[in-house]
Amino acid sequence: MSYLLGFPTPIVEVFLTLIVLFLIVSVYLGMRMEGTTAVRDADEFTQSDVREVSD
């Protein structure tokens, strides 16, 4: 039996499987991940500005 790229073992298949899994997981994470509403203008802990984290 011959495997991808002519290797005698499924070494490429194993590596590609891991890469595909990584792509699925990281794309899923990217599609689901949300920004957060502003935290600085509501907080009393710092006097820092409110420009950040307002997406």
Binding site: I19, F22, L23, V25, S26, V27, L29, G30, M31, M33, E34, G35, T36, E52, V53, S54, D55
Partner: peptide, 19 residues
């Protein structure tokens, strides 16, 4: 990072660059 939402595609970019 300048805000939280830009983290979305961070894992994909970091991993792809490593690969």
């Amino acid at each position: 990072v300048r805000n939280v939402s830009v983290l979305k595609w961070g894992a994909l970019i970091t991993g792809a660059a490593y690969l």
